[in-house]
Amino acid sequence: MSKFKKKKSGDLPAISTASLPDIVFMLLFFFMTATTMKDSDLKIDNTLPKANQTAKLHKKQYVMYVYAGKPSERYRATLGSSDRIQLADKMASPADIRNFIISERAQRNSEDEKYLTASLKIDKQVKMGLVGAIKLELRKINQLKVNYTTAQGNPVE
């Protein structure tokens, strides 16, 4: 039976790393497809309130984001400490929402327009006065589909 015995060599063979790039590329493609890009740097605090009666937002091509909150620590010296609106990368006033929506609509084809939803990402400390102003502007420009984007959780606690 010594036929099957192999000759023992002295040192271990090196593990082949030839397939390592393939594995990493596979991971890379997974993350490229499964995730979405962060679109803008937030200059404001943005802790979303909790809610559990939520629906998922549809694909990103149908969503535009309106942020609001207090300027974060770093920008407080230049922007002040009262609640502000941020649209894409810029700080804005409620009156700027109109042009922002028009330009967002122009970027999409007309077929998608009726699915277009405004996602309101508003910090939980913001006062309703500002939220009311945002909603009024959205109504004036006929952007009636909104989503109060929230974190998952039960608000009654």
Partner: peptide, 10 residues
């Protein structure tokens, strides 16, 4: 993202 969907009045 998840949230509460609402339709604003005209």
């Amino acid at each position: 993202d998840q949230g509460i969907n609402r339709l604003l009045p005209r």
